[in-house]
Design a protein around this nucleic acid. Structure first.
Lengths: 336, 336
DNA sequence: CTGAAAGCGCTAACAT
DNA sequence: ATGTTAGCGCTTTCAG
């Protein structure tokens, strides 16, 4: 099959024009592994310019065994937190001359499988992997031998590195912040109960309630699906209770935003009538009415750590914890 | 260089185990181009299962001339409109077994150049290209011969396909909507004046004002940088005028969001004190207070059209216009 | 229906 | 310092 209509210029043509061999052209292009006389180098560079030669990365990848390409598998790039992280990953990859294949699972575990297989056979130099649920396809990846960093709550295993924040502690901290304002009936809008990170975040909320010796009311835990719409519906459901909470811990930002809308529609003032904090906020948090108090992950440093692990891959499977921080807005009752 | 520690299984091993030749293995794996006897096929399939063979996509790409990979070059994946579009592009690519290299220019034209070169030498089967400004590197792409669809306001050229909405008309329509509510002093928060789409959107706003025979006040055009922060600052600047507009056309959604924040801080009610519409809204538009009236682009159909153009590439350079639609929220004064 | 073999464009070891 | 050449793993033509 002809990939393209117009003939591509190859190394051979450059070599002929420069009156040298293809090896020397390689040495010039790659600045190694052997030295080249300055005069020759100049002739080669000129020939490259004249012919408009551009190296074929695929051929180089086949011969060298490295594609200079990473892969990222994410649940859905349209999620602002994921998009912000992807942005950092892309910026960071480029610093080392790598590009990134982005695999979007469309929030479906089945589709995630296809994405994983697809990226594996593209021979990426490494994978960043955020699974949609707690059944990641890590075995497929390990079997293939591609280095991988999971940014998930899963436990590390042989051949799988994990980089994450301690979500349980983070959830506890942000709930404690709420409690420090004097709220006592703190409900939760959580993600799907089947997901690992939902469990961690719920556990953190419980830890906080326990440390204040406050009772937890199970009807105040409303599971939703991590979307704005889900948060909206969950909030409406909660408001239908005869006695609803005076504060909420919402397990991600999109749901908090949906929640805010439901509350506004019912004329419930945040934070006066109902305070609210959320997990995994983004830059958007400061731009809502009221601004959202949230747990934030240091996405830039996560991105650079993750890629560093891939670059220096030792076949390893360590666990790296990254820091988180609280960003206060007005939604929790703080006066700014 | 050794790409990986553990030995990979190749076609040859499969062939040996199945007692046949590598060509037949190929025929089985690719389901062509030559037929294979059923008995042989079964033996090969079994051998593949036994060895855990996974084809090497790079070698296949080199031999076949097609990488089954597209590339997308975007200004910044963290922009919600871009992220939503990328999501659709990724979903659509996958339908045809393609993956996508994502190039993020980081809103920098210089970095965009590197990204373009990087994706070009990876031999993608085609590129989707949104340039950060009006100086796209289309020449580099055309010279390389890679099919490309630009989702921009640029004019089509030989070897470059363009897919876009008529931004001028869209801007006019949404401004007319504002005017239909009776506002007369409509200001603009625009993008950088150097950008092509800024000009189109401004022209549309002028068209609308003209058709109502309303005067336009140049101090009501505040250029910003298409970010939330930029919109925030622009709004504050506008409010400092002695007599400011009674309505605003904001040239993208992030700026409208920044604007909303500035107005809320000043206690200015939207839409009662100042109405507002924006360009390129996303699903988020409905979740702000008040919900945003905006021009929306049909991202799913844009994604599928763009990829269709790449798949059926004829070396062509056509212009395809895609429809837009207005989504009404409360920010313009509509009562919902 | 199946096998042998010539590439795809490049890297890098081995010669010189 | 430079040239020669054997692969990298696969596709596909050309012969059986």
């Amino acid at each position: 099959m002809q990939p393209r209509a117009n003939r591509r210029v190859t190394r051979e043509e450059v070599a002929r024009l420069a009156g040298t061999s293809v090896a020397v052209v390689s040495y010039v292009v790659n600045d190694g592994p052997r030295p080249v006389a300055e005069a020759t180098r100049q002739r080669v560079l000129q020939a490259i310019k004249d012919t408009g030669y551009q190296p074929n990365g695929i051929a180089r990848a086949l011969a060298s065994g490295t594609t200079r390409t990473f892969g990222a598998i994410v649940p859905n790039i349209a999620n602002p937190f994921v998009a912000a992280l992807a942005h950092e990953l892309l910026q960071e990859s480029m610093k080392y001359g790598h590009v990134m294949l982005l695999g979007d699972s469309g929030d479906s575990s089945q589709q995630e499988r296809e994405v994983v297989l697809s990226l594996l056979n593209r021979q990426t130099d490494g994978l960043i992997y955020i699974s949609v649920d707690r059944h990641p396809y890590s075995d497929l990846i390990r079997q293939h031998g591609t280095p991988v960093v999971m940014l998930d709550g899963v436990s590390p295993a042989a051949g799988i590195a994990v980089l994450r924040v301690d979500e349980r502690r983070a959830a506890k901290d942000v709930t404690l912040h709420l409690l420090s304002h004097g709220y006592q009936r703190v409900g939760v809008i959580s993600g799907p109960l089947s997901m690992l990170n939902t469990r961690d975040r719920l556990a953190g909320w419980r830890d906080a309630m326990d440390s204040y010796r406050l009772p937890v009311n199970d009807s105040w835990i409303v599971p939703a699906d991590y979307t704005r719409e889900g948060g909206y519906l969950a909030a409406r459901q909660l408001l239908a209770e005869k006695q609803y909470p005076d504060a909420l811990f919402v397990c991600n930002e999109p749901m908090a935003i949906g929640c805010l809308r439901a509350l506004a529609e019912q004329g419930i003032n945040v934070p006066d009538d109902l305070a609210l904090v959320c997990f995994n906020g983004t830059d958007q948090a400061a731009y809502h009415q009221p601004s959202l108090t949230c747990v934030r992950q240091p996405i830039a440093s996560i991105a650079s750590s993750a890629l560093k692990i891939l670059r220096e891959w030792q076949g390893g499977g360590g666990l790296t914890e990254s820091q988180y921080f609280l960003q206060t807005g007005r939604s929790c009752g703080c006066v700014l």
